[in-house]
Write a protein that binds this DNA or RNA. Sequence first.
DNA 1: ATAAACTCTATAACAACTATAGAGTCAATC
DNA 2: GATTGACTCTATAGTTGTTATAGAGTTTAT
Lengths: 136, 136
Amino acid sequence: MMKIGELSKVTGCSVQTIRHYEKEQLIASAERSEGNFRLYDEAAVEQLLFIKHCRSLDLSLPEIRQLLALNRSPGAQCDDVNRMMDRHIEQVEARIQELTRLNEQLRMLRRSCSNRRTVEQCGILRNLSATPVSSG
Amino acid sequence: MMKIGELSKVTGCSVQTIRHYEKEQLIASAERSEGNFRLYDEAAVEQLLFIKHCRSLDLSLPEIRQLLALNRSPGAQCDDVNRMMDRHIEQVEARIQELTRLNEQLRMLRRSCSNRRTVEQCGILRNLSATPVSSG
DNA sequence: ATAAACTCTATAACAACTATAGAGTCAATC
DNA sequence: GATTGACTCTATAGTTGTTATAGAGTTTAT
């Protein structure tokens, strides 16, 4: 059994984050030592790594909670898992498109000003004052 | 002179957002009517549209505050504006790359499970339990 | 006994809003 | 002139996923 500091080192999650996950019911409340310190076993390491992996894929804490619940009821159909992943992939792709458009606008704006002019002549500020970017 | 509700309609910013911008010093404190209602003129519309335009480009409120300050000192060199835009463009591009990698991993994961299996057999959950995605 | 390193809980901060409560203002209607 | 409804005011809490802090208690080593 290890204390929270060691769990933190092993998993790469900060101590506060682990306590936060407990409060948010992503991991079960840990056993406590006599002195009220949290105690963890290998299963806790596994579960925390699962969560960390999900977070690296930008899954939200509620989404992860749902996955963990499904994981605990092995007889359930996994259509729900698939639906969640599909929705998540859609969101990520929408965000990529959005940022790509944004990037084009920013680069266009950036080309409108070369250095060493005064702000008065700055194409960037002038274009930002005009309402639609595309018309500037 | 218009009240905050009309300014909100004209600019498409919510009433709370306008008050928030005032508190954050992005717009000057508005004049007040006898009954203590905020009163705005056309200049306020312009400035709010400028801010909205910057926000649509994902510029942060501190960045916008800086742009507005530069805008008010027309003699200044606009190198600062350029530097900010370059940094911002870099950030957006980094985020796009990150999300693109993420998307590949999500799609790979999604392919590992077809519908109508039980959770026990679900490739997605199995792969999430394995630590590195790339090896799954 | 004491110091260092660790842990505990509770609370605030971050960003950029959004939502709410409870009170005040204003114009129009009865 | 009282009341209704639409609007506005301030102050405060909630959102998301942490991170940071304060103040106290525990454990380990010296």
